[in-house]
């Protein structure tokens, strides 16, 4: 518990130095105080899932992010093409997707990634399903194939699956 608070405080201190850029004793002391206070407040506020391993999860992200940004770029081109098309070839629809095999952190990541990709966004979240609004039938079909879900499920350290 103390280790968690101190780790959070030292990460916050790095953020403080990056943002301020000053190395005076006074400013560093103020930063240390506020970082410790913030870490303590965050510890009081939330009970992080002990099965969620932040280090493992962050180390796995570089394998996921390039593919994800490529996907964002591709769907951006698709949606832009549809907007520029004089006839607006869109077919908005709702679909429900099961997230049964994912842990809580993975579910949140999945819903956020869906919303970040243009052409789809999450409208509603349940315990085992998420409701997705998509601009066209094809994007909904793509989502149902679950390529992104498999990639997110492969991220290690995201806690136990409920």
């Amino acid at each position: 518990m103390l280790i968690r608070v101190l780790t959070a405080a030292s990460l916050l201190l790095i953020l403080w130095v990056l943002l301020s850029g000053h190395m005076d004793i006074l400013l560093l002391g103020l930063g240390l105080g506020s970082c410790l206070f913030t870490a303590w407040l965050a510890h009081r506020l939330a009970l992080p899932d002990p099965a969620f391993n932040t280090l493992k999860f962050s180390l796995d992200l570089p394998r996921f992010l390039p593919w994800f940004f490529l996907e964002v770029f591709r769907s951006n081109l698709d949606v832009s093409w549809r907007i520029l098309h004089p006839k607006l070839p869109i077919s908005p629809n709702l679909s429900t997707i099961s997230t049964k095999s994912l842990s809580d952190v993975a579910k949140t990541t999945y819903a956020n990634c869906i919303t970040l990709t243009p052409g789809t966004y999450t409208l509603n979240t349940g315990t085992d399903t998420i409701e997705v609004h998509s601009l066209t039938k094809e994007t909904a079909e793509n989502l149902r194939h679950g390529k992104m879900k498999k990639r997110i499920a492969a991220l290690r350290g995201s806690g136990k699956t409920s």
Partner: peptide, 19 residues
């Protein structure tokens, strides 16, 4: 400006937000 209803316009706003 072009898309017909609110739920579709969210997709257009998400282009600005992401790309």
């Amino acid at each position: 400006m072009r898309l017909p209803d609110f739920y579709s316009r969210v997709h257009a706003a998400s282009i600005i937000d992401s790309m």
